[in-house]
Design a protein around this nucleic acid. Sequence first.
DNA 1: GCTGTTCATTGATTGCGATCAATGCGCGGT
DNA 2: ACCGCGCATTGATCGCAATCAATGAACAGC
Lengths: 244, 244
Amino acid sequence: MNSVSIPITTQGLQVACSACNLRELCMPVGLSDDELERVDTLIGARRKIPRGMPLYLSGESFQSLYAIRTGFFKTEVISEDGREQVTGFQMAGELMGLDGIGTGQHNCDARALEDSEVCVIPFNRLSELSREIDTLQHHFHKVMSREIVRDQAVMMLLGTMRAEERLAAFLVNLSQRFASRGYSATEFNLRMTREEIGSYLGLKLETVSRGLSRLQDEGLLSVSNKNIRIHKLDDLKRAMSPRC
Amino acid sequence: MNSVSIPITTQGLQVACSACNLRELCMPVGLSDDELERVDTLIGARRKIPRGMPLYLSGESFQSLYAIRTGFFKTEVISEDGREQVTGFQMAGELMGLDGIGTGQHNCDARALEDSEVCVIPFNRLSELSREIDTLQHHFHKVMSREIVRDQAVMMLLGTMRAEERLAAFLVNLSQRFASRGYSATEFNLRMTREEIGSYLGLKLETVSRGLSRLQDEGLLSVSNKNIRIHKLDDLKRAMSPRC
DNA sequence: GCTGTTCATTGATTGCGATCAATGCGCGGT
DNA sequence: ACCGCGCATTGATCGCAATCAATGAACAGC
């Protein structure tokens, strides 16, 4: 436990960015000590979000970005005519709120799928600081760009893949993100319901359920409620491609 | 013709950003004369892209963003397993290439659908200048953010809408973009084929064709090859919503 | 002007995923 | 431990869009 050496604030236990174990995920590398110190001042506060509660809602004024410290979120867009769609699932180290910059209002709901904690990053401060620290500026631009690329990958999934392929792609993606955080790539618990998976993948919950059962029958994985054990990750990756 | 008073360079006829009639579309408003002058230096060159030719291809090293001066483009992602999907259609005043910032490589193909001309914006110069000019920085962040929001809207289209609804949404979107450029909102020529529309909307070309015929039968519009005349824009907007 | 090619339309049929429906399971609350 | 409710699974059927197929229209090249 390194938290004993960390300053305690009114917000509770605080870990500076410079000491955060998620640093490689959400901060640029190669900052000088001086720069790192200034980046530490970026984080305005922490916020704990209990499971089921919103971090922000569509229409709320945009002030800050949020970096997930612990937990799991979904973002969901609700259109004028009442359609809902999950646009993403976010986990530790990922940034939320980028969609609010354009209009000054949040454009989707962000909701915790389990008890979570985020770092609040006031956008004004980030803008200022990124004018002074090239590396930070470039890192921020990269993060936004990667979000665009991620969205394009989802567009391709929704536009061209069949149900089982989408499911395989979804699971492989989760697997990789867990792995890059030091968790098992082959065994994990889903934080979201079948319905939320379906909404994200453009499928109905029954189709998601059937797809998982099918992948299980094929021996690629085992499903037990929210627990997933991937037995043949290679084959699962192959299942993302057509006619195999 | 105001071009007689404009400096001529080796690139041919040049219009400074400060004098460009697309300024409101691709540049921030509220710049001082001094700032405007510096923004003028941003544009490295012009490039003419003949119909069918690529502006850039996936995998090429990313150096610049491109602002469309005239013409019409599509961007297309090609996945490892050979799937292709049109991820967007871009017209005058819109920015292309944002997806390349994250990896340093272009991530999709950008191809001219008609003879086109773009302003080349070296990304390094844009980064530098946006460190000095707050307004420019903020504008750039807004543009990126809006791209994310746009992509999310496409995700919703692909995830939740039926064929005819997608088609209506597509046409209404085109209509609005033409209108905001001073062209007719109700009569325009499509620059892309049915197949390209289908790829963008996650439909087959036959379905696109049938959908257009159906909207025509319903009296909402007339189709004659690539020419579209919208008769009832309000009803077309309503056709975006389920069961009407 | 003719020809070949690309693009578009329309019809017939198929098949995947949606829908409707019933049952089962797990978890939180008391 | 029991109940109640949300969540998940599985089956039966339906319907929309994909697919297969044929024809026609537009357009570029010679």
